[in-house]
């Protein structure tokens, strides 16, 4: 099982509903976020092109944060989801420095925090909170090993990219282009 997410950059309007849903669902402390919106404007006026992305932890297959963690607090859970065990985390910051996407942050309680793909919801057959609330339904989630999953189907149908694949991290967050 390999969980993955695909975000449709053509449908995303950058409303930030996914950000708020995540903060509410996961009780993310005020002033922090586990997912966020990036708007890229590219070109020269008037020939401009825009891309909007809902970004979060890429749950990399070759995750540098898991590799550099000195205690094993950062680990792979079922389906390749990268998780932090708060009571094993010493808050050294190595994983934060190792993430090319800057997807991790120091939780005010001391441990490191990040997106969990809402593993507590997936286990109950639900979608991650961000995917569930998206008003344009632009976030697809599922198992890459299952050819009939929502994410496998859309990735077969549409062109997609991952962020800085040259960093060698093998991300599991795809962007449909």
């Amino acid at each position: 099982m390999r969980y993955a997410m695909a975000v449709d950059t053509k449908k995303c309007v950058g409303c930030s509903d996914c950000v708020v849903a995540c903060q509410t669902e996961n009780k993310v402390p005020v002033g922090y976020c586990r997912d966020w919106i990036v708007e890229v404007t590219d070109g020269t006026y008037p020939q401009l092109e825009m891309e909007i992305r809902s970004e979060r932890c890429n749950h990399c297959e070759n995750a540098p944060c898991v590799r550099c963690c000195p205690t094993g607090a950062s680990h792979f859970a079922e389906g390749g989801i990268v998780l932090v065990t708060p009571n094993q985390c010493i808050g050294c910051g190595a994983c934060i420095a190792s993430c090319p996407y800057d997807a991790r942050f120091p939780h005010p309680d001391g441990h490191v925090d990040k997106c969990t793909f809402c593993i507590h919801r997936i286990k109950n057959g639900l979608k991650p909170a961000c995917a569930a609330v998206c008003p344009t339904k632009c976030i697809y989630f599922g198992d890459l090993d299952d050819p009939n999953s929502e994410v496998s189907v859309i990735l077969k149908k549409r062109k997609s990219k991952t962020l800085i694949p040259e960093a060698g991290t093998v991300p599991h967050l795809y962007f449909l282009i």
Partner: peptide, 22 residues
Amino acid sequence: MREEIIVSGRMNPMVDPHLQIW
């Protein structure tokens, strides 16, 4: 001239606008 403007809604303390964890 090609221009690129990136706007991000993320402002996590000690991570944005650039890393200051150590």
